[in-house]
Amino acid sequence: MSNTIIKIIGNSLNAISYISPKYASDKALDLFATPRKGRVLEKQKAFLDSAETHQLKHENLNILTYNWKGTGKTILLAHGWESNTHRWEVLINQLKALNYNIIALDAPAHGASSGKQFNAVMYSECIHLVAEHYKTDIIIGHSVGGMATGFYQNKYQNKNLEKLILLGAPSEFTGVFKRYVDMMGYNKRIENGLNNLVLKRFNNLPSYFSLATFAKNIDTKTLIIHDVEDKIIPYNDAEMIAENHKNATFITTKGYGHGLRNEIVNNHILEYIAS
C-alpha cells in the first residue's frame, strides 16, 4: 500500500475507534492478517509444475505441498509473508543436484493454498502437518516461515528433526505488531484492542509469542542467518534467538537484506545441511 492509503486507513480506523473500538480493532487485525500478494503468478507456474503436488487438510484449509523427489534427507521449505514456494527456486535446484528429497508448502492464503487470512500460529500447525506427513529431517524457514518453524518445534518437540535453518526470522510478535501499529499510525484504543483480540483468539497476549524465549526449549541443531541491513526484521531479533538457543550457529551477513537470496547464503545452507 502507498503511504497515502496507509494514512487514510489509519486515520479512518482511529476515528471509528472513538465510536466502536472493538469494530476498529477487528478491522485492524483483519488488515494485518490478510496478505495482498503471494499467490502464484503465471511466470512462476512452469517451475512449480515440475514438482509432484499433494494437498493436505488443516481444519478448513487445503495446504498445497510440492515434492521434488530424491533419495537423500527430506528437507522442508517454508516461505515467508506474501511469498510462495517459488521463492526457493534457486535453492531447490541446488538441493535437487545433490539428490535431496525436497518438500515445500504454500502457507495459508499464499501460493496455491486456500484461505484468506494468515498468522504465524496457524502456519506453525501447517508446518507440523507437513513435517509429520513427509517425515521431515530438516526444515528451512524464511522470515515468518522461520518464526513459525520455531513455534512448531517449541510446541511439538519433534525428536526426529535433525536441523532447523532460520533465515531472517522475527523473534518477538510484539515487535511485529508494534511495527504494524506504528506504520498505520493507530491510536492506543486500537493497539490495546489488538492485544485483547490476540488474547481472545490464542489464549495468550502477543508477548507470549517470543521465538527468543521458545529457543530455550529447542535442542535441535539450528542455523540462524540474518543480515545486519535487514530493513524488515531487526538484526537484534536474530541476536536474541541465538543468545537463548543452546545449540545454534549464528551467521551474520551484510548487503543481502531481508530476502537473503544470495549464492553465499545458499552455500552456508548447503554446508550446514551436509555437516
Rank of each mutant, 00 (worst) to 15 (best):
residue 1 M to W: 11
residue 1 M to G: 14
residue 2 S to P: 04
residue 8 I to M: 13
residue 8 I to R: 13
residue 10 G to F: 12
residue 16 I to S: 14
residue 17 S to K: 11
residue 22 K to H: 14
residue 26 D to Y: 09
residue 27 K to C: 11
residue 31 L to S: 05
residue 32 F to I: 05
residue 33 A to E: 13
residue 33 A to W: 01
residue 34 T to M: 00
residue 35 P to A: 04
residue 36 R to F: 11
residue 37 K to M: 08
residue 37 K to V: 03
residue 38 G to A: 10
residue 40 V to L: 07
residue 41 L to A: 11
residue 42 E to F: 01
residue 44 Q to K: 04
residue 45 K to R: 12
residue 46 A to P: 01
residue 49 D to T: 02
residue 49 D to W: 00
residue 52 E to L: 06
residue 56 L to N: 05
residue 57 K to N: 07
residue 58 H to F: 14
residue 60 N to K: 06
residue 60 N to P: 01
residue 62 N to W: 03
residue 64 L to S: 05
residue 64 L to C: 06
residue 69 K to S: 13
residue 70 G to W: 03
residue 71 T to L: 08
residue 72 G to M: 09
residue 73 K to R: 15
residue 75 I to E: 08
residue 79 H to P: 13
residue 82 E to Y: 06
residue 82 E to M: 10
residue 82 E to T: 09
residue 83 S to G: 09
residue 83 S to V: 05
residue 83 S to C: 10
residue 91 L to P: 07
residue 91 L to F: 11
residue 92 I to A: 08
residue 99 N to M: 04
residue 103 I to S: 08
residue 104 A to K: 04
residue 104 A to R: 03
residue 108 P to R: 01
residue 109 A to G: 06
residue 111 G to N: 03
residue 111 G to Y: 03
residue 114 S to M: 02
residue 114 S to K: 01
residue 119 N to H: 01
residue 119 N to K: 00
residue 120 A to Y: 00
residue 121 V to A: 01
residue 123 Y to R: 01
residue 128 H to N: 14
residue 129 L to E: 00
residue 132 E to L: 04
residue 133 H to F: 06
residue 137 D to T: 00
residue 143 S to A: 05
residue 143 S to D: 01
residue 144 V to W: 00
residue 147 M to C: 02
residue 147 M to N: 01
residue 148 A to T: 00
residue 150 G to I: 00
residue 151 F to P: 00
residue 152 Y to D: 04
residue 157 Q to L: 04
residue 163 K to S: 06
residue 163 K to D: 09
residue 165 I to Y: 02
residue 165 I to C: 06
residue 166 L to E: 08
residue 166 L to G: 05
residue 168 G to I: 02
residue 168 G to D: 05
residue 170 P to G: 07
residue 171 S to N: 13
residue 172 E to V: 05
residue 172 E to C: 05
residue 175 G to T: 09
residue 176 V to T: 13
residue 182 D to Y: 12
residue 182 D to E: 14
residue 184 M to C: 08
residue 192 N to C: 07
residue 193 G to L: 06
residue 193 G to T: 06
residue 198 V to S: 00
residue 200 K to Y: 09
residue 206 P to A: 04
residue 206 P to G: 05
residue 207 S to D: 15
residue 207 S to C: 11
residue 210 S to D: 07
residue 211 L to H: 06
residue 214 F to I: 05
residue 217 N to T: 15
residue 218 I to K: 03
residue 224 I to C: 05
residue 224 I to M: 09
residue 225 I to V: 14
residue 233 I to A: 10
residue 236 N to T: 14
residue 236 N to L: 10
residue 237 D to E: 13
residue 238 A to K: 03
residue 239 E to R: 08
residue 240 M to I: 07
residue 243 E to A: 14
residue 243 E to R: 14
residue 244 N to L: 11
residue 247 N to D: 12
residue 247 N to I: 12
residue 247 N to M: 11
residue 250 F to N: 07
residue 253 T to I: 08
residue 255 G to C: 12
residue 255 G to W: 13
residue 255 G to D: 13
residue 259 G to M: 12
residue 265 V to T: 13
residue 266 N to S: 12
residue 267 N to L: 12
residue 269 I to Q: 10
residue 270 L to K: 14
residue 273 I to F: 12
residue 273 I to C: 12
